[in-house]
């Protein structure tokens, strides 16, 4: 599997993501700086987590307007798989590649802990290696993960199966509507999620529940 990791000032989970992709696919991902206007041909584009542009204005707002994001939007329109984790999710929402918005956690506190996630849709390019309804463990670390969408949008994404991960067993850490932790776009090739699957891929991490997400994508890339 060929992959690319987008890099922007203030992102800090890019190294974890590069390590995870290298470990799982056996090949280091290409890295692409924010000023690039074209992306290489890859099977997966990842926008990792962090605090791009210091979270100024709104989380992900400034990053979403950088040149590389136009290139990401073009690839997404062509059907290339795109995944945004944490700040990457916020960037995809701000770029209009996913519906809704992420707001300050209802508790107003930064949360850094493990949560339980339910695989709400195991029939996507990103989740096919999980079983439907499977409960997994995953770390979260964020201040703005409180997913919001207007009632009409919410009904649409729920109806279309675009909600892919939900916080389960009372572990919603941020007040997110319908316990939403991750969604895909209508076409199913763009995923955004708050939890960090890249931080739970080998036993030394204390578990491997994040691994099937990458393996799902890999099985498609062949």
């Amino acid at each position: 599997m060929k992959s690319a990791v987008i890099q922007l000032p203030g992102l800090n989970r890019d190294r974890d993501m590069i390590a995870a992709l290298t470990k799982i696919s056996g090949k280091p991902p290409l890295t692409v700086w924010q000023t690039e206007t074209e992306l290489p041909d890859v099977d997966l584009i990842v926008i990792p987590g962090g605090f791009s542009y210091g979270d100024y204005l709104r989380c992900g707002a400034i990053a979403a307007r950088m040149p590389v994001m136009r290139a990401v939007a073009e690839k997404a329109a062509q059907g290339v798989l795109v995944m945004g984790v944490c700040n990457g999710f916020q960037i995809l929402l701000e770029a209009g590649l996913l519906p809704g918005a992420l707001m300050r956690n209802a508790s107003l506190k930064f949360v850094c802990r493990h949560v339980k996630l339910q695989v709400a849709n195991a029939n996507t390019a990103f989740t096919r290696a999980y079983s439907p309804g499977q409960i997994i463990r995953c770390p979260v670390a964020h201040h703005d993960g409180n997913y919001f969408a207007d009632p009409e949008t919410l009904a649409r994404i729920e109806g279309e199966g675009q909600v892919v991960f939900r916080y389960a067993e009372g572990t919603n850490p941020n007040g997110s509507v319908n316990d939403i932790a991750g969604i895909v776009n209508e076409a199913g090739n763009v995923l955004g999620l708050m939890p960090h699957p890249e931080n739970l891929i080998e036993d030394a991490h204390g578990g491997t529940d994040g691994r099937p997400l990458f393996e799902s994508v890999m099985s498609l890339a062949a």
């Binding site: 709104r58 707002a61 701000e94 918005a101 707001m103 919001f148 969408a149 207007d150």
Partner: peptide, 9 residues
Amino acid sequence: ERLLANTVI
């Protein structure tokens, strides 16, 4: 429309 406000919220 393009930057200062997120018109979703």
